[in-house]
Amino acid sequence: MDRVKIYTSNIQIEIMDAKNILHEAGINFFEINKMDSSYAGMLGGSIELYVDKKDVEKALPLLADLKQA
């Protein structure tokens, strides 16, 4: 599977919204959490969402109203 990063944020609610949108559209995604769980939001880091390369064109318009990666 060729994965492409389509969304990144350090705000958990934004990531939850993006994941819900992708899930409802039937788009599989992969999440990488680069936040330090001991100091969430204080030391930086982010959460990244990736989709299969074939789903990028479908996923990006769905997330257009959210902050872009």
Score class of each variant (00 low, 15 high):
Y7V: 12
I15V: 15
Q68E: 13
I6C: 02
A69H: 02
M1N: 06
V4S: 00
E24N: 14
I15M: 05
P61G: 08
F29Y: 15
N33R: 12
E48L: 07
L62K: 05
P61D: 10
N10T: 06
V4Q: 05
G45Q: 05
S37F: 14
R3N: 06
S38E: 13
I21R: 04
D17W: 03
N28K: 11
Y39E: 10
G44M: 07
K5M: 15
L66D: 12
F29C: 01
V56F: 10
S46E: 12
L63Q: 06
N33H: 08
L66C: 13
Y50M: 07
M1V: 10
D55R: 04
H23F: 06
I27F: 01
M16Q: 10
S37Q: 13
N33F: 05
N10S: 13
E48M: 12
D55Y: 05
M35E: 14
L62G: 05
L60V: 15
L43F: 06
D65K: 14
P61T: 08
I6Y: 00
K53E: 14
A59D: 01
E48V: 07
K34P: 00
L60E: 10
G41Q: 04
L22Q: 07
Q12E: 14
D17L: 11
A69P: 07
M1F: 05
I11D: 12
E24K: 15
G44L: 07
A64V: 13
L60C: 03
G26N: 04
D55C: 03
I47K: 03
K53L: 08
L43R: 02
E48S: 15
M42H: 09
E31Q: 01
I32D: 08
G41N: 00
L66M: 15
F29M: 09
G41W: 00
S9I: 02
K54C: 02
I15Y: 00
G45H: 05
I15F: 00
E48C: 10
M16C: 04
V51N: 02
D17V: 11
E24V: 06
E57Q: 12
S37G: 15
G44I: 09
A25T: 05
A69V: 03
M42F: 12
I27S: 04
Y50R: 04
L63C: 08
I32H: 06
S37L: 15
K67L: 07
Q68A: 14
M16K: 07
I13L: 11
E14S: 11
A18N: 02
F29A: 02
L66N: 08
E31F: 00
L22S: 07
I13P: 00
S38W: 10
S46Y: 09
D52N: 12
L60Y: 01
D17T: 15
E24W: 03
V51G: 00
S9C: 02
Y39I: 10
V51H: 00
P61L: 11
L43S: 04
I13Y: 14
E57I: 10
L43C: 03
F29D: 01
G41A: 02
S46F: 05
A64Q: 13
G45F: 00
I6P: 01
E31R: 04
G45T: 11
G26K: 02
N28E: 14
N10L: 01
N20L: 12
F30G: 07
A25Y: 01
N28L: 09
R3M: 08
A69I: 03
K5P: 10
K53W: 07
Q68P: 06
L62R: 06
